[in-house]
Write a protein that binds this DNA or RNA. Structure first.
Lengths: 96, 96
DNA sequence: TAATTAAGTTTATAATATAAACCAAATTAT
DNA sequence: ATAATTTGGTTTATATTATAAACTTAATTA
């Protein structure tokens, strides 16, 4: 069958959800991602950090009025990695 | 986006590969699965055990001549779980 | 000014994956 | 015949990963 290896960074429910959101909207606030994924802030913070360290997303710390606001954006590398991950997954799923 | 949770039993590269093989061929020998997945025997043994305990596959220990031979088959539950997993995944992948 | 909330981060723990070590029986080499 | 090797795995120990709990800092509200 020749299964392609799955990028371990993307083969994680929460990180995949984060990437999926960013694919859809190019950029999103931490709190929005938290709400959409239902993740705890701590878990989300860790996973965003991993994606950022890998260069899959870019994190900008700004302010919204006086409150801190963390904005995430997907990078070109992130886009490519996501596409490759989907391709690899297809070798397991047997779907068109 | 309403991400559906991913069955943790299937959201694992090796276990997913095992299930994928069994979806394709209904039954397969341990050594064949090992060869196709490139997994070590130990790792494969553990993961097959988990799938079996969950009732996703059925394991039969027979002999091939005088050598032991472990045959795995997918169950109806396993089939359903796999289909549900694929459906859930689609909520992340944004593909048709 | 004390308590609460917002927006995260850090750290500790629980869960998971993986390989290394091991076992039993059969086969092959000496 | 018996020692070494191979086959077909299982068990166990370790490394990795995910997750939540605890914490921090600043702003808002009571």
């Amino acid at each position: 069958m020749n299964f392609k290896p799955l990028d371990p960074l993307l083969h994680s429910e929460l990180r995949l959800a984060v990437m999926s959101l960013l694919i859809a909207s190019e950029e999103a606030e931490f709190s929005y991602i938290k709400e959409q994924t239902g993740a705890t802030a701590g878990n989300l913070s860790v996973q965003i950090d991993k994606l950022s360290t890998a260069g899959y997303i870019q994190v900008e710390k700004t302010f919204k009025g006086k409150k801190p606001c963390t904005i995430c954006r997907i990078t070109a590398d992130g886009h490519t990695a996501f596409e490759n991950y989907v391709k690899a997954l297809r070798t397991y799923l047997r779907v068109k």
